[in-house]
Design a protein around this nucleic acid. Sequence first.
RNA 1: GGCCCCAUCGUCUAGUGGUUAGGACAUCGGCCUCUCACGCCGGUAACAGGGGUUCGAAUCCCCUUGGGGUCACCA
Length: 489
Amino acid sequence: MSVRVRFAPSPTGQLHIGNVRTALYSWLWARQTGGAFVLRIEDTDEKRSTPEAVATVYESLRWLGLDWDEGPEAGGEHGPYLQSERKALYREHAEKLIAEGAAFRCYATREEIQALRADYEVRHGKGFRFRSPWRERTDGDPNAPHTVRFRAPSEGDTGWEDLVYGAVSYPNAEQQDFPLLRPNGLPLYNFGCFVDDLTMGITLVSRGDDHLVNTPQQLLLYRAWRAIAAGTEPPRFAHLPIVLGPDGKRFSKRHGAAAVLEYREKGYLPEAVLNYLARLGWSHGDEEIFTRDELVAKFAWENVGRSPSKYDLKKFEHVQATHLREKKSDAELAVLVAPHLAARGVEVAAEDPRLVAAIAPVKLRATTLPELAEGLDYFFRPDADLTYEAKGRRKFLTEESAPRLAHLAGLVEAAEPFDEPTLESAITAWMEREELAMKHVAQPARVALTGRTRSPGLYETLVLLGQARSVARLRRGATLASEAAEVSG
RNA sequence: GGCCCCAUCGUCUAGUGGUUAGGACAUCGGCCUCUCACGCCGGUAACAGGGGUUCGAAUCCCCUUGGGGUCACCA
């Protein structure tokens, strides 16, 4: 049977980094096996689900490149893919379970149950398990408001072989007569999940390990369903340890940067996000850096860890920087960085060969796309708009450096051809004659050329800037330096 | 508290009875050097504790401790 996996988020806010990891593992498995990745929206909590959050799910997944074969906006033969549109299906399945005796109509009100719970907790503390007085009655009016409940067993255990945790089992005595359908006809999580996974032909359910305790209930439903459809087999399950914040507490907004789209805003590469998240709780020997395709090829459930792991921004940044530096071509980066340059008021076409050429040295000094844009800025900003770091100007555009900058401008102007070797030999020959150290020339020149105290190497910068602009900026720097001399003199 | 799960450097992890316990991030030295990076070399740093099993345990079993999850007509 071919693999069918699903990602089933509840749209109650931003798509969270922890959820993305479960989506990623499922997606990797589907792509590796040639199976189907199904997206389903679990929006049965009317109070918390919003259309905006649904849109965020789509946008986040698309940005990451986790495409779905079936689901909202993609279609498929098992739709609809929003639980809120599948009410009839839940009702139908509930009725069959009632007819079979596996479920029953319960007329106990929420208040009655709360009262029982409160009473229990006063006596015994936590751990109330509801046994409905209606579980053996059939005299209720099917048209009166009621909850459909599962007639839970209290003997034995329910267990399964988890792809991550191995053998897991829960005592049935822990079960209560859990609700399937609310009076308004909307399913509760476990029932909706069961009906959907069953009807969508899901072969492997992968989700956070906070769902470990839900699995027995779903297994019980599959077992009951055999009376209706002989041969029904439950899917396999793979539970993933949750992601913890640096403080060891469950990762949340409180830790900052929990939402996927925040990484897009910060200028991270989706491949880097996927790489970091994949490695958080999964490994492939000593390898650290993976492209999306490599992840697809190398992912394996048996290498998924069982202990919760902590989110570490420093390592995340390292993975991001490595992808920026090594896994993207300069032409690809040019396309990605162009909008960030535009945001800084620097207009340059992504195809501009000068942009592509400047990326190689600058990307060694950047982690994110905005940082790349910052490092590229002065190459494309008009000379007149160039600004100077106050500290660099004060320290290097001095009376002493003014004549050197002027002379350097002349050397640059005379360089023919205008390339690094020619510039280097001309400049070093001059420095030797004048007994100047490199730092006495390069640092003032750097400030004059870039406005900064940090940049790629001098010869590299000159060539990238071009002869005319280099000469103009050096002359302007010389002027500023002599003005500084007048002020201080 | 009941039930369930987990436990190797600060962090992510490799390791499946015999290893000087490896790698990566971080950190600390050093090299390179016109700045900042990149890169390279090197250092510090871990099997939670206690019992077993075994000729031999990070690896298997038990207990303790610690951490996490869950106990909603939420998902």
